[in-house]
Design a protein around this nucleic acid. Structure first.
Lengths: 144, 144
DNA sequence: TTCGGTGCAAAATGTTTGCACACAC
DNA sequence: GTGTGTGCAAACATTTTGCACCGAA
């Protein structure tokens, strides 16, 4: 399975790439380079952080992975599958929760037509204020 | 106008904030901290880069600005107005072009209902392969 | 055997922070 | 006058790069 992904992308099937991909695959959410690296260390795999970054970079370029940008500008990665979800992040406390179902399915063709790009994925985050911070804000207003 | 924005957000109306906001306002596209800073230098305004970052940060927190993340993880900012657009970035060459009209209007209420968040904005980028890189890719395949 | 991949260390990039001073309210 | 905002320099986090060696094809 992972071998096929690599072959399809004309990348060499190295032990490091295999392990990194399997970590991403078994993560339930988009995962950062640092998180992948920590997982590797925990599992006693001695793979350099640069290798993690380089692997993420080529695999994103080959569209095997999708790069997901969090609100703070750091990148997470997930397998580029058809069905996926998005997150909403609180601009006060940075807490973020999952939004199920992607609202953008069936949009690729029209974007393709407009831009000339072959659309291979997208990254979407919502920003808002979470229920808890809204409550705090209201209480604060009352005090004044 | 700018004074009102600041007052509304209970921020002090300083010369620096005024100038920074006017730069963002007159930019036709989302603009990065560095680009704002360069514009300031060109116009002989001696405002520190830290001040630019701090201003962008508070104004985003107050939802006066929207933070837009480019494919490389750097942030651009634009006024949080009702109508806005998004970008598609090429995963090969990082070239990015504008997609007019936001496909997510009218989605806020349903997300609010599901998550309890007050939705204040979103960040969306598409990824793909641009026309030029697609062409290169095809030529390369022919050679082989 | 060859060329792409990796480890290591060092640099580059983008952004944040502590502190003293300045200025809006 | 008070407290928020700013400039400066230094720190920080994340990501990238040059180089020598390694290993998959």
């Amino acid at each position: 399975m992972i071998e096929e992904l690599l072959k399809k992308s004309s990348l060499k099937n190295t032990k490091q790439r295999h392990i990194i991909l399997s970590v991403i695959e078994s993560a339930k959410e988009p995962i950062t380079a640092e998180e992948i690296f920590k997982t590797l260390v925990m599992d006693d795999h001695k793979i350099n952080l640069s290798t993690v970054y380089r692997t993420l970079h080529v695999l994103t370029e080959k569209n095997v992975l999708l790069k997901i940008l969090k609100g703070d500008g750091t990148a997470s990665y997930e397998l580029n599958e058809l069905s996926h979800s998005h997150y909403i992040t609180c601009s006060k406390c940075n807490n973020s929760i999952l939004i199920e179902n992607c609202p953008l399915k069936d949009l690729n063709e029209s974007i393709s037509r407009k831009t000339g790009f072959k659309v291979t994925g997208h990254s979407l985050q919502f920003t808002g204020i979470c229920a808890e911070c809204l409550k705090k804000q209201k209480n604060k207003n009352k005090e004044e």
